[in-house]
Every structure is written in structure tokens, then in C-alpha cells.
Design a protein around this nucleic acid. Structure first.
Lengths: 240, 240
DNA sequence: CGAAAAATTAGAACATGTTCCAATCTTTGG
DNA sequence: CCAAAGATTGGAACATGTTCTAATTTTTCG
């Protein structure tokens, strides 16, 4: 009888109905993105599919971006799969997390490309940033820990510190996702391009002890990138 | 009598009038962006200001993004100022070009933020990519040369090669511009954040000979970033 | 000059994200 | 069970980028 979905449903009849509507909207958004593919989903279509009025969608989410963001958070069972990663050396773990993270995207590129295209929309109502607060906090904490551990285990120098490294990694990620979403970075280069960027950034702060594994990842990604070179006309890296 | 504006005006009366309209549109777009600031310019307002119909704007440019891109290319006398850079050691030159490039943005942040917000719009009609072909070719050639020279002068290892390094630098740039345009990266961190990312990437491939100057830039940028830390609530680096 | 070609024009049209409103349920609490 | 509070609803409204069409203006060229 009790709703097992969602976190801590407030179990008033009113709140419960609200939660159901919320979930229905997220599910409909997911399905619509899957079906329409390239075409972005429209709030009107979304509302109709979810059996809900447009106004309700806005009451519950506030913006289209918030809906899409919820779809993203809903789809990726990130934390669970992250917990299962074997805790090898810190460097290997960093790239494992990276590959895990991007495996979602490359496994279902049409879906996630549309999704990210929506999320990266700079024109949309900007209340929610690029990521919801909680999601941001979680992912940032994970990555900060990964880097801090690598420093503690003498794989990375303490020099610039995890915070600044994280900022650089985040920008590589953002640039790559932007390029991917706009079509200038093909899917087959996505993971390698980001991985190469990561490894290059980390190499800059590698200790003697940490260098070999980073170098290995770097070489592997570089190899993939060279094997999947872009045709001369297709611009891959856009320099501004 | 002869129009000295533009490149190789085709000097037919028809082409000349077209060119004048084109320039008027670009100028109006520039002014409107300057005046409205945060609000994106609308094609209807732009057309009215330029004394031209909306249809004409689309005939001449094809899309709003193309107009804004033209404004960007028009504003930055990049090549001229680039030519004046003293040719010191290759590494110093790389960071000089970087600072020159971003000095436009930080000197007039409101203007360029609005502009980039428009350019990075993932929803807009996608005919023109993120950069026009010619502009892209020019900038990419400049940066490729910078990196290739650094390799030839034994500042960077030949290992991953200029092409891959350029791809990483471009992604750092794209991520930073995205963050800046969406407001998650404050202007006072912009140049340093990108510079730090560049230096970190380049450090990963530095030779013994090139390392010191890259390290110097790296330390300087890191210092700026630490001095301009973000308040705890404001997210600076978004990790996805 | 005068006909043909080329371009611009006003305006409607379409789909979009978002907001607003009065009317209408639905749940809650007494 | 009933009044009050809370939420949803349909629909209109607004501003946006973009496309289209029919009419008009402007340039070209013989």
C-alpha cells in the first residue's frame, strides 16, 4: 500500500498525489526525449503525455531545464555503480569514474545528447544553474575526494591542490559536453577526448610515483583519438 | 567616393547596398547588446534599429547566431594586436595570446557575456557552428603554430602532438566560456581559470627546458584564483 | 528608356518557453 | 459533513527565432 517510490514521501494524500504527478512528468519527459530524438521536447507535448496541464508542470518544476535535469538524475544510478568500483590505486579509480560517468552517454548517445543540449541552453530561464544543488554537491564531493586521495597517496603533488585541479577538470568536461551537444565533437571521441584532457591536466601535477599510470591512460586515450580522427572538414576542437 | 569599408566590396551598386545593410545590421546589433545588457537582443528590435526588415536580416545572415558572430569578429582586432606581440620564448607567447584574447572579455564583461550567451545557445538554428569557418581556421592555425613552435623549440615534448594539446586547450576554453556565460564563473576568475587550465595541460607535456616558464604561469594563475575565491554558496566549477 | 532580374518589405504564421487568470476540483481539519 | 485552504486546469497572452508569401522597390543591362 505504501508508496515505495521517491525519498521520504510526506505521505499526506496531497503530497503523495503531487509526487505521483512529478514522477509521471519525469517519465513522460524521458520517453518523449527517447522517441523524438533530435527534436527537443516541448512543454506542451510533455504536459499532454503526462496527463497534466502545462501550468502544473511549471508549478512542480519551475522550468523546462529543471524537468530535464530531473530526468538526468533519475536515469543515472551513479552512486550505486560508483560504490561498486574496485578501489585500486587512486589514479585508476579516477579514470574508472570518468569512464563510468561517460559510459551512460556513449551507450545512448541520441538520448543524452538531446538531454544535454537542453541542459546547456544558455537562453532558458536561469533559476536553476547547470546542475541542481544536491547533485552538484554530491558529484563535486566525489571528485574532490578522488583528487584528495590521489594527493594523499603521493600520486599527485599537493601543489595546486584538489580544488583547482577540479576546476580544470570541470572545464574540460564542460567544453567537451558543449562540443558534443552542438555536434562538433563526435560521440566516438567523447570519452577519449575528456579522458585525454583529464590525464593531461593531472600529468601536470603528477609525482614520480603517480606519473606512470596517468601516462598510461594518457597514451591510451591519445591512441583512441588518433584512431578516430575527424575528417578534415569536420571541426573537432573549436578554439575561440 | 570608393567605399573603403569591408574587404573587396564587389562595387556593383547592388552589392554595395547589400554590404551597407550588412554593416548597419552588425553595428545595430553591437549597440543593442551594449544598451540592453543582460537582455538578449531580439531580431525584431535589431531589424527596426538597423532600418531593415526582419526578412532582410535573415537573407543577409541566415540566423541570429550568425549576426552575433559577426559582431564578435568585428569587435576584436585580434590579428593586428596579435601581430604586435613580442616574440619571446614560445611559452610566454602562448600565455600572451591567451591574455590578449581574454582581455577583450574582461574589459567589457557585460557586452561579451551577452554575446557569448547568444553564441553558446544550443537551441538556435544550427547552420553555422560555434564559429564561422574562416574565423575558426584562423584561430586554430594561430594556436597550432604556437604549440608547434613550442615543440620545435624543445619547450613541449613531441609526444601527444600539437593537435591533441589544442583539443584539450579548446575544451578548457569552451568550458570556461560556458561557465562564464551562465554566471557560474565570475569575471574576475575567468582569465586566470583558463590560464591555469592551459598551464596545467601544457605542464603535462613540458620538457625540462620548458617547464620553468609554464610553472611560473601556473603559479601566478593559481595565486589569482586563490585570491579571488568564490563564496561557499556560489558554485564555480561544475562537475557533471 | 524599359523590361528583366534581384532584393527588400510588411505582415502573417508557426512553434517555442513562460506567465497569468478565473474556474474548478480535491484534500484537509474541525 | 462542510467550509476553507491548496492545487490543478484550460486557455489566453507575451515575446521569442524563424519561415513564408505576395507586393513593391531598386538595380542592371540591352
Amino acid at each position: 500500500m505504501a508508496a515505495s517510490i521517491g525519498v521520504a514521501a510526506e505521505s499526506g494524500r496531497r503530497e503523495q498525489a503531487k509526487e505521483e504527478r512529478r514522477l509521471r512528468i519525469i517519465a513522460s519527459a524521458r520517453d518523449l526525449i527517447r522517441e523524438t530524438g533530435e527534436t527537443d521536447l516541448s512543454m506542451r507535448a510533455l504536459a499532454e503525455r503526462a496527463g497534466v496541464s502545462v501550468a502544473t508542470a511549471y508549478n512542480l518544476f519551475g522550468s523546462k531545464r529543471a524537468v530535464v535535469l530531473s530526468v538526468l538524475e533519475d536515469e543515472r544510478d551513479y552512486l550505486e555503480r560508483f560504490a561498486k568500483l574496485d578501489p585500486g590505486d587512486p589514479i585508476a579509480r579516477i579514470f574508472s569514474v570518468h569512464e563510468l560517468s561517460f559510459s551512460y552517454y556513449t551507450a545512448d548517445p541520441d538520448f543524452y545528447r538531446t538531454l544535454w543540449r537542453s541542459l546547456l541552453n544558455t537562453s532558458q530561464s536561469d533559476e536553476t544553474g547547470l546542475a541542481s544543488i544536491e547533485r552538484l554537491a554530491r558529484t563535486q564531493a566525489i571528485w574532490f575526494d578522488l583528487l584528495a586521495t590521489a594527493v594523499k597517496d603521493d600520486c599527485l603533488r599537493a601543489d595546486p591542490g584538489p580544488a583547482l585541479l577540479l576546476e580544470s577538470l570541470a572545464q574540460v568536461t564542460g567544453g567537451a559536453l558543449l562540443g558534443w551537444a552542438t555536434g562538433s565533437l563526435p560521440t566516438r571521441r567523447l570519452t577519449a577526448s575528456v579522458g585525454f584532457g583529464y590525464s593531461q591536466v593531472l600529468l601536470g601535477s603528477a609525482t614520480e610515483h603517480g606519473r606512470p599510470s596517468i601516462q598510461a591512460a594518457n597514451a591510451a586515450y591519445a591512441h583512441v583519438l588518433r584512431d578516430n580522427g575527424v575528417a578534415p572538414g569536420l571541426r573537432s576542437a573549436e578554439m575561440f
